[in-house]
Amino acid sequence: MTRDIFDLDLDILDRQMLDSAGVPCGNVDDLELEFVDGPNKPPVVTKILTTPGALGPRIGGLTGRIITGIWRWFHPERDPQPVAIDWKDVVIVDFAVHLSVHREEAGLSRGEDWVRDHIIGKIPGA
């Protein structure tokens, strides 16, 4: 699927992200748009927002607040922000959004690493 025009809602949002090593590292939960060229020009996609901290507000309502709440509860920081990835780090969009950054560098491996180090990795044979 190589092409020039993307439908942000259908082709980018909710799509799987793969890091520079090709490993799944979350979905595109939300997008940040900015009026880079002034208020009279169309806005430009500047960032991909991901992690439940971005998913919760997008779903909204009670469900959204519960998701955000659980995410904040587990997050080590006191006032956590959703992970933002610069749009310039996007290499190509096909069946997935391919990133040029490594998941650790982008701050996307925290949950996976924690579960691996504290639970799954401790079971023999993992």
């Binding site: 799987q16 992200m17 490993v23 799944p24 590292c25 979350g26 979905n27 991901t50 439940p52 949950g111 996976e112 690493d113 579960v115 691996r116 639970i119 799954i120 990795g121 079971i123 044979g125 993992a126």
Partner: peptide, 22 residues
Amino acid sequence: SQYFGWPWGKMLRPKQAARFNL
């Protein structure tokens, strides 16, 4: 895993897909 975009698969070692296995 697919909903949240985590690594998944029975062909990966459990360590490579920790949340999937959890």
